[in-house]
């Protein structure tokens, strides 16, 4: 599904990613764990297509397509979803309008019919219910005045509506209490299946108790230094990055 080969990237002339090799097959959930400053967020932004990151080498294919040649919106339409570490507030943009515009843009790009306001509302209500979220959430402006947990839940709602093939969860656990963490994890787990892959990027092992990965990769100083089964996360938690990676 996602294949990263020798990916190097700079921010303002400073090398951050120094040769990433990583493959996430269809239907699998992989975790990328690493200490602060290892390049975790850069990796997720580069994959989603944010400006300001200079790709200096390597390639990324997504579902057989050259991901790095695509605009951010094309990546989303192709089925890539980034759950933001810090979801952005959009004052003056209603959440329902935002969600419907996004969903219809993606549906249009995929050659599917757009949903009218009534059809959308019906779908959104069903997703909200499945995620144990209040309907109030879609009546407010996007993320404005949301608590940290509400923002992350709104990310999961967007994911549930857009039904991506690959979700990148960028430190989705940061700032979440245990109840919010469970809701987020349940949302991701509900999507697991042969058509859904995820890359769970995190500093701590905690989230991986709830979203058990098929494989764990250790990112340090811009490189994957070790890969292993889910138990590697526990090892990292117990012994620290420096020792495990040594």
């Amino acid at each position: 599904m996602l294949k990263i080969e020798g990916l190097t990237a700079e921010v303002e002339g400073r090398p951050i990613l120094k040769g990433i090799d990583l493959e996430v097959p269809a239907g699998e959930v992989h975790a990328v764990m690493g200490p602060n400053g290892s390049g975790k967020s850069t990796l997720s932004y580069v994959l989603a297509g944010r400006e300001g990151y200079e790709i200096t080498g390597g390639r990324v294919t997504f579902d057989g397509r050259d991901l790095l040649a695509m605009e951010p919106e094309e990546r989303a339409a192709a089925g890539l979803f980034l759950a933001f570490q810090y979801p952005v507030e959009l004052p003056g943009v209603g959440n329902a309008n935002f969600l419907r515009t996004a969903l219809n843009a993606v549906r249009r790009a995929r050659g599917e019919p757009e949903l009218d306001a009534m059809q959308f509302l019906k779908l959104a209500r069903a997703k909200l219910k499945a995620l144990h979220m209040s309907e109030e959430m879609i009546k407010r402006n996007v993320n404005v005045g949301f608590s940290g947990g509400e923002k992350k839940r709104n990310e999961v709602l967007q994911m549930a509506l857009l039904e991506p093939k690959l979700a990148i969860l960028d430190e989705t656990d940061s700032g979440l209490d245990i109840d919010a963490l469970k809701i987020v994890a349940d949302g991701v787990n509900a999507m697991r299946g042969p058509g859904f892959s995820a890359l769970v990027i995190t500093h701590y092992q905690r989230l991986l108790d709830h979203i058990v990965p098929d494989r764990v990769h250790v990112l340090m100083d811009g490189r994957i230094v070790k890969s292993g089964p889910a138990s590697l996360a526990l090892e990292l938690e117990a012994e620290g990055y420096a020792k495990v990676a040594a």
Binding site: G49, E71, E73, R75, V88, L103, A105
Partner: peptide
């Protein structure tokens, strides 16, 4: 904000109009 909208599949021109 612009990137957030585009990362959700909203084309750049539409995203600018929304903002």
């Amino acid at each position: 904000q612009l990137f957030y909208l585009r990362a959700r599949g909203i084309p750049a021109a539409t995203a600018r109009a929304m903002l």
